[in-house]
Design a protein around this nucleic acid. Sequence first.
DNA 1: AAATTACGCAACCGCGAGTAG
DNA 2: TCTACTCGCGGTTGCGTAATT
Length: 295
Amino acid sequence: MGRPPCCEKTGVKKGPWTPEEDLVLVSYVQDHGPGNWRAVPTNTGLMRCSKSCRLRWTNYLRPGIKRGNFSDQEEKLIIHLQALLGNRWAAIASYLPDRTDNDIKNFWNTHLKKKLSRMDAGGDGAGAAGAVARSGRSAAPKGQWERRLQTDIHTARQALREALSLDPALPLAKTEPQPLPLLMPQPAPAPPSQAAYASSAENIARLLEGWMRPGTGSAGKASSGSRSSASAVSGGEGASASHSGTPGGSTGTSKAEDAGPVPAFSMLESWLLDDGMGHGDAGLMGGLADPCEFF
DNA sequence: AAATTACGCAACCGCGAGTAG
DNA sequence: TCTACTCGCGGTTGCGTAATT
């Protein structure tokens, strides 16, 4: 089972992408939809490896990506989700539909980590997140976080409830059952009123604004704000791959996106939020003979 | 004004997981 | 069942820019 030959070919270009390359990639994805990245360099003539193409698309060119400063809500959500999920950036990104996992990861590494450690040093915890993070949750070995979620599910739910109730602006903190705004289907990428969008690729990304190819699978899902589900977030089918970490969950391959937008995290999300609304524990778990089915 | 340091972000690399043949 | 292949994730690096001295 040898490693796939990727980026080993001579003549494969590395480093920053040029606007011309972006355009080539964007137009290719427009025609064929995201996926089958292996074929992209061949069909486009791009001297990039498939990985690089996919990364460029998911982290930069994909429509609907919000760039720039993170709001307080986003920050709090990230902190708490990180406490819950550890460094599962793709999973975290699925709760922030407009952000890429890479963006969140960078934001965490450059801002939040310092912020939290400062708070720690100051004797001020970061709420539940700080407590949970310090408890070593985030250091869990790969592949175990979902099991931990399963076994420690009550803790997780409590922490999430805390997270969602931190900001009074979040409707979930209220008794009135309202969906979390960040999880709601977002409208097509709003004009970058806050200059929060990519600079160089902004125009290219805008080319795709409103682009919705019927029948183009995740292309449509990835575009505009229609990502009401957790899928299609971290880069087209990327988020669904994050769910591959969930036992029995859908895979991260392009096939998974065809399976329909019902990722486990949406269920988890609904269940947690339902419970947060005071519906008790009877929610999702009650509907499953075996909690494992949940995943 | 120039040099140095710190910071932020885009991109790369290696690995694990899923799937088809 | 095994192997080859592809995809996606998470950690890390490198470069450009801003801030500081």
